[in-house]
Nucleic acid binder design. Structure first.
Lengths: 212, 212
DNA sequence: TGGAACCATTTTGAATGCAAAAATGATCTA
DNA sequence: TAGATCATTTTTGCATTCAAAATGGTTCCA
C-alpha cells in the first residue's frame, strides 16, 4: 500500500468519526485492519499530527484531536480567509463547464433542501465549496482548505441545523452562484465570508465543545 | 531527540539552503549528522513532504522540492490571503507591548535600510511579519503562515532587491505600522496585500525559476 | 482497610534486519 | 567504439526486534 493511501485512509477513519475525538488511536488494531506494520502507520500518524488531526503524547501514544472552542474559532477564521481568497481567484479563472457543474450542484442541493434531506444537502454543499476551491486553480490553497475542512467537518457533523439557518444558507448559496456567474470577485468574497461566519456561529451556538 | 526537533532541524537544513532545491536528500548522512536511525528521519521526511518542502519519489528516495513558477504564484496568492487575514485579526487583538515591539523592529529595519545592510533588513522584515501573525493570536493561521513562509523564503533569498523596490517596501512598512496603530483592519489588509503582491512581482521578475 | 511499593505486562519509540527495487558498472556483441 | 544486457551493489520501504517507559495488578505494611 502506498504511503499516501495510508494517510488518506487514516484521515478518513478520523474524520468520518469511527474514532471519536479524544479517543486513543489503537495502533495495533489499525495495523491489522490496514494489513501493514507499525512503521508506515506511525509515519502516517506523524503526518496527521502535523495536520492537527492527531495529538501525539510522548510515550503515551496518540489520540484523535479534540476540537476546543478556540480551535473551532481559529479554524473558521482561517477557513473564511481561504474560501474568500478561493472565490476571488476563481472568478476570473472558472471555466464555463465548472460554472455549469456548480449550477447543477446548486440545483440538486435545493432539491435536497426541499426534501429536507440533510445528509444529501451537506454532501452537495461540500461539493460546491470544493468546486469553488478547485476553480481557483491553486494547489497550495486547495491543500490547506482540505486540511481545514477535514478538521471542521467533524464539528459540523454533530451540529443540528435550525430551519431558519437552513433557509438562509440556501439564500446565501444563490448569492454565491450569482456572484460567480457575474465573475464578481469582490462580491463573492464578501458573501463567502458572511456565509462562513454564519456557519461558524451555528456551530458555536450548537453548544459545541469537545473539551478544552 | 524529540520527533518535532528532528522535523525542525531537517526543515532548517532545507530552508536555509544547505541542500539546494532539487537535490537528493542524503538519508544516511543526515542520520549520521543527527545521530539517529533511519526510522525517525523518514518520519520527519514524510511530514515535510506533506508540507511541500520535500518530494518523495516512490522507490527513488526524496529530494528537496523545487519551486516552479506556478508554485511561487500559488504560494504568494495564499500568503497574501493569510497575511491580510492576520492583519485584520491582529488590529483588534494586538497589545500595546506587541505594538511597541513592532515599532521598534520597524525603526531598526529603517536603520538597516539606511546602512544598506540587506541581510539585517530581511531579518527585521521577517520578524515584523511574524509579529503581526503572532498578534492575530491564531495558531492555525500561524502554522500555515510558517509553512508558506518557509517555502517562499528560499525563493526570496536568491532574489536581489532593486533600490526603488527597497525604498517602496520601506514606505509600505510605514503604512503597515500606521494602520496597526490606528487599528485600521481593512486598511492594513489592503496594504499587506499590495505589499505581498509587489514582493511577488519582485521575485518573479528576478527571473526566478528553479525548473518546472 | 487504605495506601504505598514492587513487579509483571503492555505499549511506545527507535534501531536493525530483510526483501524488493533501482542504480551502477562490467562484459559482450555488432 | 557504441550500445545492450546482465550481474553486483546500493538504496528504499517495511517488518521485526529491542530497550525504555508507562500501565496495571498484587502484595505488604501501617
Amino acid at each position: 500500500m502506498m504511503h499516501d493511501e495510508v494517510v488518506s485512509r487514516l484521515r478518513h477513519v478520523l474524520t468520518e468519526g469511527e474514532i471519536p475525538p479524544g479517543a486513543r488511536i489503537p495502533e495495533r488494531e489499525l495495523c491489522a485492519s490496514f494489513a501493514i506494520s507499525r512503521t508506515p502507520l506511525r509515519e502516517a500518524l506523524k503526518v496527521l499530527a502535523a495536520e492537527g488531526l492527531v495529538v501525539l503524547l510522548p510515550n503515551r501514544g496518540s489520540r484523535a484531536a479534540k476540537l476546543t472552542r478556540k480551535d473551532v474559532k481559529e479554524l473558521f477564521e482561517v477557513c473564511e480567509a481561504l474560501e474568500a481568497a478561493a472565490g476571488e481567484l476563481a472568478c476570473p479563472r472558472i471555466s464555463d463547464a465548472q460554472l455549469r457543474e456548480i449550477a447543477e450542484l446548486q440545483a440538486s442541493m435545493v432539491e435536497h433542501y426541499r426534501a429536507q434531506d440533510l445528509l444529501s444537502y451537506y454532501r452537495c454543499n461540500r461539493l460546491i465549496h470544493e468546486a469553488i476551491v478547485r476553480a481557483a486553480d491553486n494547489a497550495v490553497l486547495a491543500g490547506f482548505y482540505e486540511s481545514i475542512a477535514a478538521r471542521i467537518r467533524r464539528a459540523r457533523f454533530i451540529t443540528p441545523m435550525s430551519p431558519e439557518h437552513w433557509t438562509l444558507a440556501i439564500q446565501e448559496h444563490e448569492g454565491i452562484l450569482n456572484a460567480l456567474q457575474r465573475r464578481d470577485a469582490g462580491g463573492l468574497a464578501h458573501i463567502l465570508r458572511n456565509h462562513l461566519r454564519r456557519k461558524r456561529e451555528e456551530v458555536v451556538r450548537a453548544g459545541f465543545a469537545e473539551g478544552e
